[in-house]
């Protein structure tokens, strides 16, 4: 048993300012017959305790590979780490042994996936799955683990948890399964929660309940959350900081209010304008003409250049680094801020 698994984060964690997860220049590449696919190509960000970081982007931008990379759940081969570090509480997760890493997953780091049926074992009762995790990571006895499992199911507001604890996954609705997965992810008081599209498969009224639950839990336990989503609405309501990804790279990084008030990257700007709004009537939606470059394309410059109306020769030739334009607000664009473009 790892000594850290049972140790709850300090109560004041939310108030302190320390970085829990620091991803530095992470590169996850896939070697295939068609060539090397640079799914994640130099991604950096950090998350503080008690804070929620959103990773947002469209299909194929590398946001899910980033999260499975952090958890070391990328199948290798064909995948491989081509560089970078994942510093978790001062230790590089990429350097841990497989055994140590197994202790982390479900212990100090909890995970929530989009499709709960892929994470829950259909032939075991939900209670037994939570109990197993508690016994392995926290070393609880059977009776204590069962009491704790019921407590957890109650915490995620599953109705009549003392009965449902003996249900099989198929007996629950989609929203209830998602809640069970959250309970499982939270079983060992994780310091970091990684949630990959946790509400995408759910109806809006259930989504609202689950997001509120995650906010509550983070406030209560001081856990840091990495939330991967394609939904800017979810980002606006849940996150403290945001990373926008495009074609395997971070194009913009900012506190949530700053990102929505002053988006800098042409891609972020296009994305925000493309979302239809519930509270504003508009005649026509903005679009981003063109499409994402093919995965095997070798691009020297900015990967958005082919779709960017203000792209120059420099943009096509030279990869733009992340530049900090305002405190905490960085953008990888040679032309930002755009109002200076004549």
């Amino acid at each position: 048993m790892s000594e850290t698994a049972t140790q709850a984060p300090p109560a004041t964690a939310a108030a302190t300012d320390d970085v829990l997860l620091d991803v530095r220049d992470l590169k996850v590449h896939f070697d295939t017959e068609a060539g090397t696919f640079r799914a994640v190509d130099g991604v950096s960000f950090s998350v503080k305790r008690g804070k929620t970081l959103g990773i947002v982007g469209e299909s194929g931008c590398g946001k899910s590979v980033t999260s499975s990379g952090i958890m070391r759940l990328v199948p290798m081969p064909p995948g491989r780490f081509a560089g970078g570090e994942v510093m978790f509480d001062g230790r590089d997760l990429l350097k841990l042994s497989e055994k140590e890493m197994r202790g982390m997953r479900g212990g100090r780091i909890g995970m929530i996936f989009q499709e709960p049926m892929t994470a829950l074992n259909p032939v075991y009762r939900i209670g037994d799955q939570i109990i197993e995790s508690l016994r392995v990571h926290s070393g609880l006895g059977r009776a204590a683990a069962r009491r704790r499992a019921i407590e957890l199911l109650d915490l995620v507001r599953l109705p009549s948890p003392e009965k449902r604890v003996d249900d099989f996954p198929h007996q629950l609705s989609g929203g209830q399964r998602q809640r069970v997965m959250i309970a499982l992810a939270l079983a060992n008081d994780p310091e970091l929660l990684i949630a990959d599209e946790p509400t995408t498969a759910l109806d809006v009224t259930i989504q609202a309940q689950i997001l509120e639950l995650m906010r509550d839990l983070s406030a209560r336990t001081g856990a840091a959350i990495v939330l991967i989503t394609h939904d800017l609405g979810v980002v606006a309501e849940t996150c403290d900081d945001v990373v926008v990804m495009y074609a395997g790279r971070v194009v913009e990084r900012a506190p949530v209010a700053a990102l929505f008030a002053a988006p800098q990257h042409p891609y972020t700007i296009g994305l925000m304008a493309a979302v239809p709004r519930l509270d504003i009537q508009s005649d026509r939606l903005e679009t981003i003409p063109g499409s994402v470059p093919p995965p095997y394309a070798k691009i020297d410059g900015c990967r958005f250049a082919s779709r960017c109306p203000v792209a120059t020769d420099q943009c096509r030739a030279e990869l733009p680094p992340l530049r900090e334009l305002a405190p905490g607000h960085s953008v990888a664009c040679w032309r930002a801020p755009l109002e200076d473009v004549a």
């Binding site: 609705s173 809006v204 609202a208 939904d231 609405g233 979810v234 606006a236 709004r277 519930l278 509270d279």
Partner: peptide, 23 residues
């Protein structure tokens, strides 16, 4: 409830919503 539950792409736009219970 449906309108209230839809997330708005604007931080701070939502202040307390009528939550619907259950499934």
């Amino acid at each position: 409830a449906l309108i209230a539950a839809a997330p708005r792409p604007a931080p701070g736009a939502v202040t307390g919503r009528e939550a619907v219970r259950g499934d």
